[in-house]
Amino acid sequence: MSFVYAKCWTTLRKSLWNDLISLSNNIQDSWSVMGDFNVIAEVEEKAGGMPNRLEKSCMGNNYTWCNNRDAPNTIWKRLDRVLYNSEWFDLYNKTIVNHLAIASSDHASSTGGLH
Rank of each mutant, 00 (worst) to 15 (best):
G60E: 06
E55Q: 15
Y92A: 04
W88M: 07
W76R: 12
M59Y: 11
A6E: 05
G48Y: 02
M59F: 08
K77I: 02
H99D: 05
A47K: 13
V43A: 08
N93V: 00
H99V: 01
T95F: 00
R81Q: 10
S109W: 08
W88D: 12
L83G: 01
D106Y: 14
G49W: 09
S109M: 10
L91A: 10
S2Q: 09
S2H: 02
A71M: 02
W31L: 14
L79Q: 11
D36K: 08
N62I: 00
L114G: 03
D29L: 04
Y84G: 14
V33N: 04
V82N: 13
L20N: 05
S57D: 06
S105N: 15
S104K: 10
W31H: 05
W31D: 10
S104H: 09
W76L: 15
S86T: 07
S109Q: 12
K56Q: 14
C66P: 00
F89R: 06
I40T: 03
Y84A: 14
D80K: 01
M59I: 06
W9D: 15
N85H: 05
N85G: 07
W17R: 03
F37R: 10
S32Q: 05
P51F: 09
D90F: 05
R81M: 04
G113N: 09
S105C: 15
C58I: 13
T74A: 08
N68W: 00
R13Q: 15
G112E: 13
A41R: 13
A101N: 14
S110E: 11
A108R: 05
